[in-house]
């Protein structure tokens, strides 16, 4: 048996033969969190969202983080993404310890290497679709590559809406603009917090396919928080959190296996 048969047929493991096979200039970043703790408040009233989490996300892999609400999954994502400050523990992006960086350095690193997609409210309401997609480049002071913006919008099927403002788009369309922004900057790591949470099924699948394609074709590292077993089945690996700790770590589970794990932890 060839090694490719291990991979479920729903996503092709080998790169598209039409793409050039040159080495990727921006390979995915490996992420590592060690003994990560995060508590809110002090003393007896303190809430412990994370109680010592050790987890690594290998370069070029797609990981789903799941767990019941209040399990700390969003907190984990935000701490690993450098958007929240941990109470103790460390986070590394590649060899860089981001938890030791001052805000300005971290901002520059985020700009260079990371992309974010939230459940909702991903776009600047005052800017057009096109301006939203090129926003990171403008913030970085780079020249805006109009062709690349058009290509990114074309990939998410919104080429004809580029002059529109977000207010006139549906939720699914807005989320696809957010994905286009992530495609345009070619981040080495993409963080997504319930990216399909506010979408209908068809739009959700479309977004997940786009995330998956980034991992497949560009070797991007992708970490996604979700509560939807179908969304999680797009990932290579599913990490389950409960009560601020990792309780299960499954490789390529089926949607059924994920649902089983979720209902088990809910009991």
């Amino acid at each position: 048996m060839s090694p490719t048969t291990d991979v479920p047929a729903r996503f092709p493991a080998t790169a598209d033969p039409a793409l050039p096979q040159s080495p990727n200039p921006r390979p995915g970043l490996g992420l590592r969190a060690e003994n990560l703790r995060r508590s809110y408040g002090r003393g007896r009233e303190a809430v412990h969202a994370l109680r010592g989490v050790d987890v690594t996300f290998a370069p070029g892999t797609f990981t789903a983080v799941m767990g019941p609400s209040g399990s700390g999954k969003s907190t984990l994502l935000q701490c690993v993404a450098g958007m929240d400050r941990q109470t103790s523990g460390t986070v590394h992006w590649g060899t860089t310890e981001i938890t030791a960086l001052p805000e300005r350095r971290l901002a520059l690193l985020r700009r260079a290497d990371a992309g974010f997609i939230f459940q909702s409210y991903n776009l600047m309401p005052a800017m057009t679709v096109e301006q939203n997609v090129s926003l990171p480049a403008r913030l970085a002071g780079d020249r805006i590559d109009r062709a690349a913006v058009a290509e990114a919008l074309d990939q998410v099927g919104l080429a004809d809406r580029r002059k529109e403002r977000p207010g006139r788009l549906s939720g699914g369309q807005q989320q696809r603009v957010a994905v286009a922004r992530a495609l345009y900057t070619r981040p080495r790591v993409l963080f997504a917090d319930e990216p399909t949470g506010a979408l209908d099924r068809a739009s959700g699948l479309q977004v997940l396919r786009l995330l998956r394609a980034g991992v497949e074709h560009e070797g991007r590292t992708c970490v996604m928080v979700t509560h939807d077993p179908v969304a999680a089945s797009f990932a290579d690996r599913v990490v389950f959190l409960a009560d601020g700790m990792v309780v299960e770590d499954l490789l390529r589970p089926s949607a059924a296996r994920i649902a089983e794990q979720l209902s088990g932890s809910a009991c």
């Binding site: 958007m83 805000e103 300005r104 901002a107 520059l108 985020r110 700009r111 260079a112 974010f116 409210y121 991903n122 776009l123 600047m124 309401p125 005052a126 926003l135 990171p136 913030l139 970085a140 922004r181």
Partner: peptide, 15 residues
Amino acid sequence: RELVLLRTSGATPVQ
């Protein structure tokens, strides 16, 4: 909220 979004898109505090 827009300022947070700008920051996650790579805006520095100075910007």
